[in-house]
Design a binder for these strands. Structure first.
Lengths: 199, 199
DNA sequence: TTGAACTTTGAGTATACATTCCATTTTTGA
DNA sequence: TCAAAAATGGAATGTATACTCAAAGTTCAA
């Protein structure tokens, strides 16, 4: 028997021995990407821009990440998860909590929301699996919404609650998209109006 | 007084003297773009692909269009308008007609719908005005929906009907986006469920 | 202290793309 | 038939991008 230190040299399987300095570099890169995406959107967040802000050269980036897209997806997912009202899924969040969290995400990080849409829509052709990942996230969210609905109305069937949740989330997504088209749109007011139809 | 034959040589103001052959070339290019967008989406619809299919060279393209984006926007708008249940706006379409037309557009031209989202979302940064154009189109559609709602329920105020229409259209857009993420999703069923909440 | 594994550098590669240019050809009305 | 205007071919341009690689530097456990 022997201890295998390194199997392949793909970054994905790394993590046999991580040096501190590499871990720090990784988080500087992630931070840089998060900032740039929030400030200027996807177009402006080039590899060069990310590396410049992180104070790193392209080679270092590719020592730590497989691709730029991998990083972007990671940042978007982290942003989405960061505003979850009940990260542990204890089943104590109300529909209202969930809707407010959604509003918070969209209004506080509109650029990230836009990036989310861009990556999801372009990614489906891109066989990159980005769409699949976002889909899984969406499905978890639908379950959360459906559970909250059932908790407040125990007579509601599982199936019906799922359908209701899909429609409500559809409305929220659509209104968010609407808002990205025209920031003058009263996003919050319309979201509350939509939510009111599902209590 | 004199007859002005040509003001500027921008393609936009052309059309003082159009040769037949140029008109034909133009529509071959538009057809090629429409087909390619429907078949393979935006990514695959390069200028070269368009010109190849139209049997034309790049120079001819730019003799007729200012940019590739102009053409893409034109094709998308034409596709959207093509399925309008009441193009003249006679005010005779019911909410149901409008919803069915929406379903038809999304299910029959899913790639074009995806392109619509892509152009709208990326275009807002792009100062290209694509977002503004789509916004105007969206607003007209909201009015249509609101009018139909008022027709079937005369007690409904104008303001309320507009809000309801925005929310319903938001739901339709969101569900369409959801469907592009996963074509196994029961888009039509959920749209009908959404519409049922607004009768 | 040593040295193998890890990290960084930064110039270099690959390449895909929209757009321009202009000489040549075709159309059109007079 | 003629000349002006429009259309065409297609090579060339310019630019922006993600990504690679070999060599040099750094870390850290033994």
């Amino acid at each position: 028997m022997f201890i295998q230190k390194r199997k392949v040299d793909s970054p994905i399987v790394r993590a046999m021995v991580r040096y501190q300095v590499g871990i720090q570099t990784e988080s500087r890169i992630v931070d840089a990407a998060r900032e740039l995406l929030a400030e200027n959107g996807l177009e402006a967040t080039t590899l060069k821009a990310i590396c410049d802000r992180a104070g790193v050269q392209a080679g270092s980036f590719y020592n730590l990440f497989d691709s730029k897209e991998e990083l972007v997806i990671r940042v978007v997912r982290e942003s989405i998860n960061a505003i979850d009202p009940d990260p542990d899924g204890d089943g104590r969040d109300t529909l209202d909590d969930l809707v407010e969290a959604y509003i918070k995400f969209i209004t506080e990080e509109p650029e990230v929301a836009r990036v989310y849409i861009q990556v999801a829509v372009t990614g489906s052709h891109n066989h990159s699996g980005a769409a699949a990942r976002f889909l899984r996230h969406h499905e978890r969210r639908v379950e959360r919404f459906a559970d909250a609905m059932q908790r407040s109305d125990p007579d509601l069937g599982t199936k019906e609650s799922m359908v209701k949740a899909e429609v409500l989330l559809g409305a929220l997504d659509g209104l968010a998209f609407r808002w990205t088209l025209d920031m003058g749109f009263d996003f919050v007011g319309h979201v509350r109006e939509a939510a009111a139809r599902f209590v």
